[in-house]
């Protein structure tokens, strides 16, 4: 939580400078958030090229919109709102809501070297691969809320702001997303629903 506060403080200072036209401050913001935003967009869009393009476009849009950013809003929330809207625009544009199957992309199964033994590595890799497939198979509205909550640690109030819905809807949509992800995971793992 302290890390989050520290990042927020740094964001605040740099965003205020960037808003006044300081390009170096904006570069600092880009460097701090580019991988997080790219990771979120990659899981939303499914392809690296598109995720790269949308990441870049989102930062350019953020720069142009910075004069309208208010310090009362957490910078990350505001930034992810821009990225999420850009991703949805692209998804609408290509009229494709379903992800490309992760089976087709071996890179999806790649995972860092966490475990000591080859068996454990294989097991972990398989587990993470299945989970990733389960998340990627979710409908867009469930996938985005799950990722923003679990990976970006957004509160329900922040999720409501980013997604343009009320907190009651955040609660129900997130619960549905979790239930669906668990169902998908068990399905891909060959487990029965009662396991």
């Amino acid at each position: 939580m302290d890390d989050k506060t520290g990042i927020d403080d740094a964001d605040m200072a740099q965003a205020l400078s960037a808003r006044a036209g300081d390009r170096r401050a904006f570069a600092g913001l880009v460097r701090r958030h580019q991988d997080r935003m790219f990771g979120f967009l990659l899981r939303m869009l499914g392809t690296r090229d598109e995720a790269m393009d949308v990441t870049q476009d989102s930062f350019l849009k953020a720069w142009r919109a910075l004069p309208d950013w208010r310090p009362e809003a957490r910078f990350t929330t505001w930034l992810f709102q821009i990225a999420r809207n850009a991703a949805l625009d692209l998804l609408r544009h290509r009229l494709r809501i379903e992800f490309v199957s992760v089976d087709a992309d071996p890179a999806h199964d790649m995972v860092e070297d966490y475990a000591p033994s080859p068996e454990k590595q294989f097991s972990d890799r398989q587990h993470i691969g299945l989970l990733q497939r389960a998340v990627d198979s979710l409908p867009v509205d469930q996938r985005e809320i799950l990722l923003l909550r679990e990976l970006e640690d957004m509160s329900y109030a922040e999720l409501a702001l980013i997604l343009g819905i009320n907190e009651g809807t955040v609660k129900s949509r997130l619960a549905r997303a979790r239930a669906a992800a668990l169902t998908n995971f068990r399905h891909y793992a060959g487990e029965s629903p009662d396991d």
Partner: peptide
Amino acid sequence: LSADVALLPKESL
């Protein structure tokens, strides 16, 4: 589920 999703590989630009 939350713990596992947090373990998903971190993508880098």
